[in-house]
Design a protein around this nucleic acid. Structure first.
Lengths: 204, 204
DNA sequence: ATCTTTGTTAACCAAATGGTTAAACCATAG
DNA sequence: CTATGGTTTAACCATTTGGTTAACAAAGAT
């Protein structure tokens, strides 16, 4: 194996292991030793490649966020109607998160812990902007396609309905007294149910 | 001051300080010394009254949850119509959380960290049950008051719309590019906007 | 072949942290 | 007044944890 491949390989292995551990335990709960074990390498390697815990964490965090951002951009900046956007986003987003269930909670939690992280993210490419979406809502309201509603409020409603169940999974499982299987089934149903719920509310 | 009052007083001071620190930093991020400082007492006192970090944390956690539970019970188990419940709950809940903004995130986060906490909570009094609410939804759908919708899905929608913005405050502030003042204003508007959004969607 | 650079490890270190202890403090019952 | 019991503190301790170091291995470069 070539030199370049070798170090890229361990670097990637570390990032992968760090992702798992950080997303499950958070910055404070994660242990460098545990990450090293998960990566199957010596703890000193973590520092060799990423200097310290903070930098390793930031690498994981920006990486995680850059997975989510494109998903949001889809709803904000393509050319379909609001109705189509809601349908597509709800369906796609729930599918996507079902494959990465720790992602939203990880991001929200660490953003709460240190709101300054947002700045680091904002510079990143593909950072979602709301302008187009808001204009589109205003336009469709004026045209009489939609009932009067504020674009920002609608945006918050959409992401709340889609993201919250994944963030609060244990809470919802508890209240509804359902197991993991039933929860997955429910999320599957929400791909349709949520978009219907939103469309019902806003369409004239 | 009487003997009993004295120790009840420090005990309460500790719990109060612990609440602040735990809710802001979580179990892993919180430091016993920081809690002691916040309470203005010696670190050994924490152990004298609560034995260890875990037990102190649990005291805070169950205490926090028993603040939220009654709020949920209101919507689930009183005798008003679904429409009134949605209106009241949305208004009351957003008002309540605005005064305790760390609460929902704290509960969700720690429940994610250790889902077994749910069992400890369930035994507690006033634990919300969904049965009545689900039956009521079914009934109002049959009567033709509401469009067809599943009670559980509706419940998840209601709590998502109400809780999520408080859990993901930094994320929303970031996307919407608004400061704290504008955020508070937006939450104020949501007291009406969210219940309208829900009612629009479900009422025939 | 050997020299140099890069990658990897075991052993180590200092600081932080949860928890303990023994002595001091203090209200009050007798 | 003082013996007693709960309360409070400063000092201490063992362990964990992020981070370092120095030696070693591997792989090109000369």
């Amino acid at each position: 194996m070539a030199k370049t491949n070798k170090n890229k390989d361990t670097e990637w292995q570390i990032l992968n292991a760090a992702e798992k551990v950080f997303q499950k335990k958070g910055m404070d709960g994660a242990r460098m030793q545990e990450i090293a074990d998960a990566a199957g390498i010596n703890k000193a390697m973590l520092h060799y490649y990423y200097r310290n815990k903070q930098l390793l964490f930031e690498a994981v965090f920006t990486n995680a966020f850059s997975l989510l951002a494109p998903q949001l951009n889809k709803i904000l900046n393509d050319d379909s109607s609001i109705e189509e956007k809601v349908k597509n986003f709800t369906h796609n987003y729930i599918s996507f998160i079902s494959k990465h269930p720790y992602l939203p909670n990880f991001i929200i939690q660490e953003l709460n812990r240190n709101p300054k992280f947002f700045e680091k993210i904002q510079q990143n490419a593909a950072f979602p902007t709301l302008e187009k979406f808001k204009n589109q809502v205003t336009l469709e309201v004026e045209k009489g396609i939609l009932k009067p509603i504020d674009g920002e409020q609608l945006f918050v409603n959409i992401i709340s309905l889609n993201i919250f169940p994944f963030v609060a999974t244990p809470l919802i499982k508890g209240f509804l007294k359902i197991d993991d299987k039933a929860f997955k089934k429910m999320m599957e149903e929400r791909k349709v149910s949520v978009s219907e719920f939103i469309i019902n509310s806003i369409k004239k």
